[in-house]
Structure formats: structure tokens, C-alpha cells
Write a protein that binds this DNA or RNA. Structure first.
Lengths: 160, 160
DNA sequence: ATATCTGCAAAGACTTTGCATGAGA
DNA sequence: TCTCATGCAAAGTCTTTGCAGATAT
């Protein structure tokens, strides 16, 4: 997909990517990407808005939404729904990246935990499944989602 | 979970289930369950509302939402998010039921396809993964979600 | 009889749209 | 320069809440 080369040249490595899609690189887009790449959290649009508000007091929530949409469309960011009514965003590590992970979602407090364990086994099964399903349903599979739901350590204790 | 006995006795098989949770059985709840059990579609609250409107012209959308919440809480119905901004509901077939399935979601037209293929392999992997994750993160896993995203046959053709 | 449930209307939360101003290439 | 991006305000959508009247047990 990308070159993998992230050595700084003044511009973020994503600059070419954005431009390649015919979009302009702006300070706001730069800022959103900066935040996205520097966190392992699962930020909502408003989270990003608040974090940016210090640096860019005039940035609008609308711009965050529009930027995120652009980033999702160009494949730089994944959009998730963890069931709390607001979308969460995360910089995309492709399914073959060593950082590729899935999520544990606490249905009590909403805490999200990333895990990379079992990913190799999962990947193997997913590939088989994807191939089988593609053939059977003539479905061109581009992505998958795996999430586990349950109670995190804290909520599990509190319940007792 | 349930007895598995669904032979009619005047009352729906779910009657005892609802009552067991201390809820009352009402015509509206009966009606929602009737629809849920008779379809393989993935209905939104409004879908159900419209389907019921013929039989019960006075039923309110609010009641649908409240009933669905109740059914989800008592485990009779699953709630899904397929990314189109509205929740979808489906009668629950437990993870060990032969009808247990996962979904293929067309990101273009929104079509949902159920599949049961590979479920056995998936179940095996999921069980392993659940056990491993439970131990590692002290996370009490109660449920899982697997979805594939891509283009359905029709949308894939149209795109060319 | 009475605690629960329903339906209506209104409110709430997140997200998108319209439009004039501002900025990138 | 000229098209694209931004910010504000307003609108849109789905969902939840408040409350008086109706219903199940």
C-alpha cells in the first residue's frame, strides 16, 4: 500500500497519500493525522476536537468529521463502533501489519483493550474464510471485524 | 438456555422467558417477537414499527425501542451495527445453535448476507481465543462479533 | 388493586449540510 | 487565480425520556 518509509522530510509521510487522492494538505488535516498517529487510544471525533483545541482554538468539529471521513475513505484510518453511540477512529495498520490488532470491549464501562494475541491463527482462519465466502457468495471481501465483548477486570470485580 | 420446545400451547415459547425476568407479557411484546421469529432479515426498529402498523395501528415507535431493549437484555434478541447509522435486530440463536451465523456486509448497498460456513472452525478458534484472552486480561468474555465487509455480487459488477 | 407498560410529544446525542469566507497549489 | 477546505449555524436522524392514561396479573 504505502511505501512504509516514514522518515521525516518536513512533511508527514501521509502527505503524498492525501495528495495522491487529489486532496489538499491543510494544517487541520495535518493536525488530525498527527494526533491519530501518536495515540493508541480509540478517539471519537469530539476527543480529537478537544485535543486539537489547544493548538487550534478555531478548529471546528465539522472539520474533524470531514477530515475523518476523508481519512477513512483513503484508508488511512479505521472507523469503529463499540456500541456506545459514537464512532471511534484509529490509525489503520493493515491486516498484515505486525501491529494489526482486534478489540475487547467492556460492556459495562466501555473500556477498549487491544490485543494482538492469536492474531496469526485468526489471520489464517480469516483468509480461508474470506476465500471460501468470496467464492460461494461472489462477495469481494475487503475487510473484517472481530470484537469480543464482556466485563473488564475492574467491572467484573465490582459486580461481585 | 431455553428448553428448545417450541410447540405451541396458545402462548409463545418466549412467554415464560419474559415472565421469568419479572416482565409482563403484552400484546405489543408478543407482536414484536412474532415478527422477529418469522424473519431472517435484520430489521431496524422502524422496519418492525412499519410491519406492525398494519396489525396495531396505534403501536408507538417508542414501544418498539423499549421492547427491543428488553429483548436484548434478556438475551432473546441480538443487536447489531452494520455501519449505516441505525441498529439492526435479530432473534438470537445462541453461539452453539446450528443456526448460529455471522454476517457479510456490503459496504456499497448495505445488503447483509448470513453465512454459516466455517462456523465450526471459527467456533474452535474463538473458544481458544476467548480462553486465552480471559486469562491474560482478566476479561470475562460473554460474546463476540465477526463481520466481513466488502462488495456484494451486484455492486461488484456495477462498479466495473 | 397496583405496579408496570404504552403512546405521544419533546428532548437529547451524534453527525451532516448550506453557505460565505479563507487558504492551498 | 481558482478551486477546494473551513467554520459557523442550522438541520437531520436515530434514540431516549417524561408523563398521564391504560393494562396485566
Amino acid at each position: 500500500m504505502q511505501s512504509g518509509c516514514r522518515r521525516g522530510r518536513g512533511l508527514g509521510w501521509w502527505h503524498g497519500h492525501i495528495r495522491g487522492y487529489g486532496y489538499r494538505m491543510t494544517a487541520q488535516r495535518e493536525a488530525v493525522l498527527e494526533i491519530m498517529t501518536k495515540t493508541r487510544e480509540h478517539l471519537s471525533a469530539e476527543d480529537i476536537y478537544h485535543q486539537l483545541h489547544n493548538l487550534y482554538p478555531n478548529i471546528g468539529l465539522t472539520t474533524i468529521y470531514r477530515t475523518l471521513e476523508l481519512l477513512v475513505d483513503t484508508g488511512l484510518v479505521y472507523k469503529f463502533d463499540f456500541g456506545d453511540g459514537r464512532a471511534r477512529y484509529e490509525i489503520s495498520e493493515g491486516p498484515d501489519s505486525p501491529d494489526h490488532h482486534h478489540h475487547l470491549v467492556c460492556t459495562c464501562c466501555g473500556k477498549i483493550t487491544n490485543y494482538t494475541d492469536f492474531i496469526d491463527k485468526e489471520r489464517k482462519l480469516l483468509n480461508e474464510t474470506e476465500m471460501g465466502l468470496s467464492k460461494k457468495f461472489n462477495f469481494k471481501i475487503t475487510n473484517h471485524l472481530i470484537q469480543f465483548y464482556g466485563l473488564c477486570e475492574k467491572c467484573n470485580k465490582d459486580e461481585k
